[in-house]
Amino acid sequence: MFDFGQVIDFLPQLGKGLYYTLLISIVGLLIGFILGAIFGLGRISKNKFFFIIASIYVEVIRGTPVLVQAIWLYFALPIILQFQMASITAGIVVIAINSGAYIAEIVRGSVDSINKGQMEAGRSLGLNKHQTMRYIIWPQAFKRMIPPLGNQFIISIKDTSLLSVILVPELMFQGRYIASNHFNAVEIYTTVALFYLVINFSLSLLLRYIERRLNY
């Protein structure tokens, strides 16, 4: 009935999709982490301007679906700007901007959760605010960020499958292409699902390992 043996024939094409999925996830999340760190600090900043900018960013992105963001960026923005981004670039931008907003909240929450006595202890020793953040607050906050950050990474990796609608040649896009041409939806979509599962489960294990290493 089902012939999973035939999947082998499509592995090169699925592998290509996997490559783009990983590429967009890694580059997107790296940029997302940088955005998250910057805007997360904006959310705890005493600078009104910085705080408002960061808050608008977080609220707009959190308040709209990632699918809408992707379609808007790829199909609507070019009309406004008269400039078409390549689909892969657009995919990276969506993942970066989307994850950045959530990571900003993770950063804010983690930094906020560090006892204020830590800042006072640092400052009372003559460290300035920047030094205290860098040597005392950040390292502790970073450890607390790992579980929610891992969660966000996994969500974002799965979100890349939505990018198939803006023609990014990632895993889900390839799966749909194959399945609609060869009428093997069960075999192909099961394989695609397994690919995502393997990526995310590996990431889970890696994060668990890092978290243990950072224990004190």
Binding site: G117, E120, A121, G122, Y216
Partner: peptide, 10 residues
């Protein structure tokens, strides 16, 4: 020196 010590736990 603080009541709660405030050592750096990391």
């Amino acid at each position: 020196v603080f009541q709660q010590f405030n050592l750096f736990p990391h």
